[in-house]
């Protein structure tokens, strides 16, 4: 009897496992085809030799990474010398993405809070309003931004007209213009996850904090922020990661001297002038940086989960 039951039980489990594997198949195909394959290709290409006029020669080479990091290579007779050009571009990208993320957080948090604390119907309208601009293509929005902030654009003309400034402030082609562009491009990615966690936040916690002698700021710092933190972290990642690799805003608003990683990579694959292995290597370096950020996020999450 007992044997019957146990064998029956285990056969049921096997069947379920078999079904589970079959049901996972589409997911595996998608991950394999759209994630593993392209990243794998990029990894392989980054170790190949470049073909002039684009493409690769199937010869193993470290030239791409060598070009990225070193002016005088590891393999010469003289001691190696660091090449700062690309590292500078990467560093600038990190900085721009970080500033854009902070801007998004500073504006996005109060916005999300405002929306989440409205009454039902008003809330849906505000939420919808936030997403409306994003129905328009990013390229068009970025170009519009360029028109808005250029020297003879509406912003400068308005400020001139009301007499705040005496001559146009040169916004276009600055770091700040890029940061502004990134901020505008990715703001909803900050607002929406924060909104989701604030909406679940129980206002009774704020009342309890005030009841226990916390000022408004103390309640924000010790009660609200820790509780909605998952939304804030998700928002920061969703803004920081695409900002890091963005090329539209830096290209259109930053001009040549405010080059970012996205543009650097884009250039390697465009037309005949490119260098595919170098572009692939730069992508791999970008990817590893993103993975580091995500690793921090995962660690923060598990820590929060432990509690």
């Amino acid at each position: 009897m007992a044997a019957d039951i146990s064998s029956g039980g285990s056969s049921t489990i096997t069947t379920y496992q078999g079904q589970g594997a079959r049901m996972m198949l589409p997911a595996w195909v998608i991950i394999g085809f759209f994630l593993v394959l392209p990243v794998g290709m990029m990894l392989v290409y980054s170790f190949l030799t470049k073909e002039f006029r684009g493409g690769v020669i199937w010869d193993f080479s470290l030239a791409a990474y060598d070009q990225f990091f070193f002016d005088r290579g590891l393999f010469g007779d003289e001691p190696p010398k660091i090449e700062w050009t690309y590292i500078t571009i990467f560093w600038r990208s990190i900085w721009q993405a970080a500033v854009a993320t902070v801007l998004c957080l500073l504006i996005g948090f109060p916005t999300a809070w405002f929306i989440a604390t409205r009454a039902g119907p008003a809330r849906s309208i505000w939420l919808f309003a936030i997403t409306i601009p994003y129905w328009v293509n990013l390229l068009i929005r970025t170009i519009s931004m360029k028109f808005l902030i250029r020297d003879n654009g509406p912003l400068n003309e308005f400020l001139l007209a009301i007499g705040v400034i005496g001559e146009p402030i040169g916004l276009i082609n600055t770091n700040f213009a890029v940061q502004l562009g990134l901020f505008y491009s990715y703001l909803p990615f900050m607002v929406l996850p924060i909104y989701a966690s604030v909406e679940r936040y129980n206002m009774a916690y704020s009342e309890a904090a005030a009841d226990l002698y916390a000022s408004k700021w103390a309640a924000l710092r010790f009660v609200v922020l820790p509780i909605v933190k998952p939304g804030i972290i998700a928002g920061c990642i969703l803004v920081f990661v695409p900002s890091l690799g963005a090329f539209l805003a830096p290209d259109l608003l930053g001009g040549a001297k405010n080059f970012m990683i996205g543009s650097l990579i884009e250039e390697q694959f465009k037309g005949n002038a490119g260098n595919w292995p170098f572009g692939a290597a730069a992508s791999m370096i970008l990817l590893s940086m993103v993975l580091v950020v995500l690793a921090f996020y995962a660690r923060a999450q598990t820590k929060a989960g432990d509690r």
Partner: peptide
């Protein structure tokens, strides 16, 4: 000080 109807203990 208040003991709230639903306690409102800080979850974190």
């Amino acid at each position: 000080n208040t003991v709230f109807q639903n306690y409102a203990l800080f979850p974190h």
